[in-house]
Each structure stands twice: as C-alpha cells, then as structure tokens.
Design a protein around this nucleic acid. Structure first.
Lengths: 107, 107
DNA sequence: CCAATATTTAACAGTCTTGCTAATTAAAGA
DNA sequence: TCTTTAATTAGCAAGACTGTTAAATATTGG
C-alpha cells in the first residue's frame, strides 16, 4: 500500500535519517526542538519535515503555535516487511558466504 | 560498518530498487540482461549499477566481456538490523494505534 | 588482424535538491 | 491591540541526479 521508493529516498538524506531516529527514541517533538539539534536553518528543517511527511514517514499536528511531529510506525513496518520478504535470499546468501570463508581459512 | 544513508538513497530510485529486487529473486545477472527489461538506455543502466556498487549494495565481476552483478547480502542485513533496532518503537506504537481504533469502533 | 559484442566513459541538457535570507502566517499573552 | 514566539512559504543560487547520444575500451572468435 505504501510505496517504498519515497520512503527510502526520504531516509537517504543523513539529516532526515537523524530526525527520524530522534523521533523514534524520544517520541513526538516540535519543529523548534528538532531544529535546535541541527546545524541548519529553521526553513531548511521545515522542508525536511515536509519531505518526511509527504513520504508518509511522519505525522504532524498543531498544538497552540507549535507543530508536533511523530514517526508513523506503519512506515517502519513497511520497510521491515520488505526486508523480510527477501529474507530467504540474504539469509542463505550470507550463510553460503560464511561457509566459503571458513573453508578458505582452514583447508 | 556500512552507512545507511547511501543504502537508502540508492534504493530510493525506483529503477534501482527494481534492479535490486530482480537480482535478489533471479541471482547474478549481467548488465545487458538487466538493461533489456528496463525502458532506459544502456549507459543510464550502467550508471545506476555504479551507484548501487558504490553504495555497497551489489558486487561486480567480469566474465569474458560481460559484467555480472549480484546483491551483497550484508547490505540487506544492515537495513534489516536497522529496522529491528527500532522494533520496540514501531511494534508498540502500532499496538497502541490498533487498540485506540478498536476502542473507537466499539464504544 | 578485424569485426562483432558488451559495457563503460564523456559531454551535455533539463530537472531536483538543499541550503540561505527575507517575508508571511498564526497564535499567545501582556 | 501590539509584540513576541513558532513555523512556514517565497525566491534564489549552487550543486547533484538522470537521461540522452557519441565515442572509447575490452574481449571474443573467425
């Protein structure tokens, strides 16, 4: 239901990944608090938050004159499900790799 | 060890995501075979493959005059580990959401 | 050696992205 | 009402991204 490329694209920027990680560990935060920890201007942060919002990664709600942002758990679930849907591939590939290395080291 | 933003950024392009998914289901493929399924020129595909390579998402090896590409399982593991490291957040958030919806529907 | 095949590199155009400062909008509170 | 606080939108510049065609590189196989 949720398209992956916008999610990956949004997380591909280090600033946005940092914002998402902070929101996940600290929970809902307002734009000002998010901005304070970053080395860029408020308008720049506002645009990053808009990108995250349009990708479906965060929600936004108004509280007095503040805008509160929070990560949408469904977005993370979508990514998790994608990796899991390919788990058979990377799990067995990794196992094969480890076996090959072991065989190489102790001949 | 492997940085996430380049991985996410590389997967943020629909063409590259499609390439990675195809390589995961079909295994190692040469550049020409990958290009044949896509609506863009060979040089464009070559550049996408280079982006994937530099992000650490694929390996490349020469076989006669062909270049064979394959997904690095470690890259997928890195992403999986990231989602899992935040699983407590999205798992409990989702559960809370579901409870709130249920409470709303049957008052 | 030469022609064919496979792929990449070069050069270029159009479009996005990201940052900035200045201006605007919205609500709070004296 | 007027000032302060919070955040966004507008407008602009620098640089990155993606696609194209043409040229270059490398390997094969007659």
């Amino acid at each position: 239901m949720s398209p992956l490329p916008p999610l990956f694209s949004a997380l591909g920027d280090p600033t946005r990944l940092a914002i998402v990680e902070r929101l996940m560990t600290e929970g809902e935060l307002d734009a000002g608090t998010i901005q304070a920890a970053l080395p860029i201007s408020a308008p720049a942060v506002s645009r990053h938050l808009d990108v995250l919002k349009r990708a479906g990664l965060v929600t936004r709600r108004a509280e007095k004159q503040r805008r509160l942002y929070a990560v949408r758990p469904e977005a993370l679930t979508t990514i998790s499900q994608w990796t899991m849907s390919h788990r058979e591939f990377w799990d067995t590939s990794l196992r094969r790799l480890e076996l090959a290395i072991k065989k190489d080291q102790t001949p």
